[in-house]
């Protein structure tokens, strides 16, 4: 096959055959022929026998494992915090459809978490990483990394955004309330 890594291709361009390669990201199987779906460069993985395309255009914002997303906490239950996902970091485009994410108590922080309400509260703005795609509009998330977690905490008493005072706590500048959070290293304020 004449396709080489780095070659620029357009939608529909032939890349190889499925007898030799697996059609991977941004390609499709056209009756045994592998073709590109987008304008981009070819990535040929000879060892794993995979052909994929690295898009040169911006790409539709579809969630996949490992994506870091931002969003707002909508509900905190006993074992699970729910989050409305606003978008993917590093992708300016709006999500292809609305997604909601769940953060299980075991995925909230690195160590043991006794109470999920000490980690998240309704209204918090959170950065989280996708760990599993469930169906069309649901994902599992983790915040058990330093740069993940709450980036803006909302006071449960008066809805003001709170100031970070130490690694685990935030303080409301308006009403003086102190609360616990899983705070991201990228906390704003």
């Amino acid at each position: 096959m004449k396709t080489k890594t780095g070659a620029f291709v357009l939608p529909g361009d032939a890349l190889g055959v499925t007898e030799e390669y697996d059609p991977a990201e941004w390609t499709f199987d056209d009756d045994g022929k592998i073709r590109s779906l987008v304008a981009g460069t070819v990535s040929l993985d000879s060892k794993n026998k995979r052909i994929s395309i690295v898009p040169k255009t911006s790409s539709p914002a579809v969630l996949k494992n490992g994506d870091v997303v931002y969003g707002q906490i909508s509900e905190v239950r006993g074992q699970r915090a729910l989050m409305r996902i606003g978008g993917i970091k590093d992708n300016k485009r709006g999500l292809v459809t609305n997604f909601s994410g769940g953060i299980h108590i075991s995925q909230a922080d690195k160590g043991y978490v006794a109470k999920l309400t000490d980690e998240f509260r309704i209204g918090d703005l959170v950065d989280a990483k996708v760990t599993k795609i469930i169906g069309l509009d649901n994902v599992d998330l983790t915040t058990a990394e330093n740069e993940l977690g709450v980036v803006k905490a909302m006071c449960t008493n008066c809805r003001a955004y709170m100031k970070q005072i130490n690694k685990k706590e935030v303080l409301c500048p308006r009403c003086g309330r102190k609360e616990g959070r899983k705070i991201s290293s990228k906390y704003e304020g």
């Binding site: 529909g12 056209d30 987008v38 255009t57 539709p60």
Partner: peptide, 11 residues
């Protein structure tokens, strides 16, 4: 559409 990265079989 191609500029938007929308997957297509042809233009």
């Amino acid at each position: 559409l191609a500029d938007a990265g929308v997957p297509m079989r042809d233009l």
